[in-house]
Design a protein around this nucleic acid. Structure first.
Lengths: 124, 124
DNA sequence: ACAACGTATGAACGATTGCTCAATCGTTCA
DNA sequence: TGAACGATTGAGCAATCGTTCATACGTTGT
């Protein structure tokens, strides 16, 4: 993304670890993939969106019901739903004036589960 | 976190969906859990930290090697490592002047894998 | 004791984020 | 047609974030 001049001067200690660094660098996925991965987790990194996703995992729900459920304004929810839609995590279906949202990825719950495992191990 | 007065007035459409909302509300994990989950994913939501975690999944690496690997300043890396340590994702081991970091959670890679599955499905 | 070096930290900054508010769009129904 | 209503959108704002810079800490070797 940025193309500034590399300002980093190699320090002394890693002359020893040269080989390790070289191998790790080789095994790392491409820059773009890691960036996309971060972008995806950024979407999960907000409790409002987490709640929306969790709710949508239970049922298809319209915008105003989500707003009611989370005790937030329709506008706030709509903004967040747009982010979730851009990330291809949810899809929408219009029925008259009402727009119903539902999950667009069956892996969401699995990602959550892994996260919960980490949290539960954290408190032990 | 915030305790302002609930400003939400139930809209008309969801009189029909009353029961669904009630059930979803009952099935949702406690507020605090969802908040912690968001906090965890927030940590993953930065490409620098993603790269660090990915690197540490390959090997135990010292701060200056990570900095060299990612072409960033030691300071920037150190700041990010602190965040990762606070989230219990990495642990450190001191050897003289050098501090080695390594993963503290074997689920990190699994969470990444799930994320990658979503991304790969996105482009199809 | 002092210099050198790897690391950590706090202030400061530009950038981004999540919400509110007001306005608008699209559909329904009288 | 126009009022009502659900949903969307854009501007604006406070708050948060990620980096840089300067500085301090801790260890090593002289």
């Amino acid at each position: 993304m940025s193309n500034k001049i590399p300002p980093i001067e190699r320090c002394d200690c890693d002359v020893i670890h040269e080989e390790i660094v070289r191998q790790v660098k080789k095994k790392m996925p491409p820059e773009e993939t890691l960036y996309d991965l971060a972008e995806l987790f950024k979407v999960f990194g907000d409790s409002t969106r987490i709640k929306i996703l969790w709710a949508l995992d239970e049922a298809e729900i319209c915008v105003c019901d989500i707003a009611y459920l989370l005790n937030m304004t329709q506008s706030a929810i709509s903004h967040q739903l747009r982010i979730l839609k851009n990330a291809n995590l949810v899809k929408s279906r219009k029925e008259g004036k009402v727009v119903f949202y539902s999950l667009n990825d069956e892996h969401v719950k699995q990602i959550f589960e892994q996260g919960l495992v980490h949290i539960s191990e954290e408190n032990s």
